[in-house]
Design a protein around this nucleic acid. Structure first.
Lengths: 351, 351
DNA sequence: TTAATCTATGAAATCGATTCCATGGAATCG
DNA sequence: CGATTCCATGGAATCGATTTCATAGATTAA
């Protein structure tokens, strides 16, 4: 192993470990000679401080934890990338953890990070399955432990933690307006799981946007997915078989959209022709699709940056104001004129 | 903070810290009563051991580092996911780091992990920019420090470390055979950067497959990309403008393929009609494309599993045999009959 | 010139666990 | 029954850094 310790450095440099430590941490109470000799010794021995020992004493680890819901979802990997870059710029190492949309795995990761005494946590919280967005006991413990923490993307309503979220009101308004002007009246919504606050927000904003556009809301046009591919596929079949024959659908995240599009392709249902589609999250797969899918997208770079800034503020014991970013709508050919009433994709349900 | 220490637990339980520690680590030399009382105390106080202190003394961290080239590349996020799941099953926490295809960021991450004394490292090595696949000095240090390490996906030729890679010979043979049987003779190759061993392997296998199929190799049909989207776009333009008018192209990874497909779409060059395309890595964006892209894919789940197993073997001081996984070719409609000679995508170069 | 303040330094305490070593009592052996 | 082994346990050392505290010497103030 790397058996070189600060004592070795001190010995070679002819100073005490205390002085060596001061030089290494940039403490001004060091003479130029001492500095030079310690630096030479470090170089000579290839000394690399033991982070464990260092942070055991100093209670600082220069690292933060980032918990996301799913590494393989480009939405979150973009977020992770942004957080990592900004944390890096602030001299912090980021540990990325994966909850797999599962509150048990989340708690596991949080516990390890807590025991490793990270300087702070940025969390996309998984609520408990049943009660919408309710904190787990481990989450409570983190809060009690007073480790700086901020939520990003999602929140839990029963825990007061600074949070950075995105709202989709305006973007959904635009999307619905675009659909309406293309003659769509009955618009379905494939939403996310109850435990995610984003699912609720998107669903509410959807209903609000319908009303704002003078269209009726209808609970029967709402499908409860879980933000994962398979449930998108289910939603796609539900949509095709729907008795009300909606002519358009909005899908609340990219994995579900991809699942849905795959099903529709298999069943030879024609997106853009038979019905129109708008999906959340601007990912390659949706842009490569033919026709390209109109999307409601978030600025994940901004979200990551804001999350890091908020966390740094909490660490510095300052107030971190909650921030709500706006989303933007991009019209693409998956939105087209609604087919004449009562002639909607009837032959498309089975190939 | 979590000010509860093992001494508090010991005091409440009425035992010494030594005994408390034994109970916590499952040491058999403990009486049932002691065990019960310590466990009760732990429960009561909500004690969570300080990982720093623990591993400072025990020189074990129950964690490994995984360094990948690019979090946002689905190829690597799939690999990361697989590694994480298998490490988790073995009781190891995984720290995921992102090199951004950059050896400086790689070294940074490796240094932090070294100073944190992880139990092992799984690395997709970035070589030095110029000299093909040469180790950096930090990489050398890791090797010298004798921290268990394995390479995955890529290797460095001047460092002897167990490695798990994938070879693409058979899959490329099949791909070329499929192209040939569709009448393609001049097949271009958009490859990766010199510093990645996978780039070299794929390029060589490509040439070998041409020969095996009785087709001539030609350096002029090779474009040197860098595995990133932008260079794929460049490659796409290079392909369209190529004086030899190749009728098919194989692209060495998904980000480059996506970059290329976007360009072709913009320029209204018709994939599958004007020319045929095969790409490495089976990612959603390539499957959603119209027409779906034929791919050469690796089993990343198997690769991740093998990497974890190899690392565990090294940690146990056993021999870890290098493993080469095979790739598989999936024919899709992006491969079609070659257009008649000399009529190739001439109007496609500019819209 | 003496007192007061600074500066750079080292010895030793400390962070919170694990582990080595010694020990007293119970169990086993001859 | 005395000697030996085994068990559970506690005291103290330890891991490798940082930080407190005391101090010798230099500098400034009065």
């Amino acid at each position: 192993m790397n058996a070189v310790t600060i004592k070795d450095v001190a010995r070679i440099a002819g100073v005490s470990p205390a002085t060596a430590s001061r030089v290494l941490s940039g403490n001004p109470a060091t003479s130029p000679e001492a500095r030079a000799r310690v630096e030479a010794a470090v170089e000579e021995l290839g000394f690399l401080p033991n982070a464990q020992a260092r942070s055991l004493r100093s209670t600082k680890t220069d690292s933060i934890a980032l918990l996301i819901s799913d590494v393989r979802n480009p939405y979150f990997s973009d977020l992770a990338h942004a957080v990592e870059q900004h944390a890096r710029a602030a001299g912090l190492m980021t540990f990325i953890g994966n909850a797999n949309e599962d509150s048990a795995q989340q708690d596991d990761f949080l516990a390890t990070m807590l025991s490793r005494r990270v300087d702070g946590m940025i969390v996309v919280p998984q609520g408990l399955g049943e009660q919408a967005g309710t904190a787990t006991s481990m989450m409570r413990r983190i809060v009690d432990s007073e480790i700086p923490m901020v939520f990003v993307d999602r929140t839990l309503h029963d825990i007061a933690v600074p949070n950075i979220t995105a709202q989709s009101r305006e973007a959904l308004n635009e999307a619905i307006a675009a659909l309406k002007s293309n003659g769509h009246r009955r618009i379905a919504f494939i939403g996310g799981p109850k435990h995610a606050s984003t699912a609720l927000e998107r669903h509410r904003a959807f209903d609000a946007a319908l009303e704002a556009n003078g269209l009726p809301t209808d609970a029967a046009l709402h499908f409860a997915g879980d933000f994962r591919t398979a449930s998108g596929a289910d939603g796609a079949r539900w949509f095709l078989a729907h008795p009300l024959a909606p002519s358009a659908v909005i899908i609340a995240d990219a994995p579900m959209a991809i699942g849905a599009l795959k099903v529709w392709r298999e069943l030879r249902a024609k997106v853009g022709t038979d019905f129109s589609v708008v999906a959340f999250d601007e990912v390659d797969a949706l842009l490569m699709h033919d026709p390209p899918i109109a999307t409601i997208s978030h600025n994940l770079e901004a979200m990551g940056r804001a999350a890091v800034q908020a966390l740094l503020a909490v660490i510095r014991q300052e107030e971190a104001d909650p921030l709500e970013l706006v989303s933007s709508f991009t019209l693409r050919p998956s939105v087209a004129t609604a087919p004449p009433e009562n002639a909607v994709h009837t032959e498309g349900t089975r190939p």
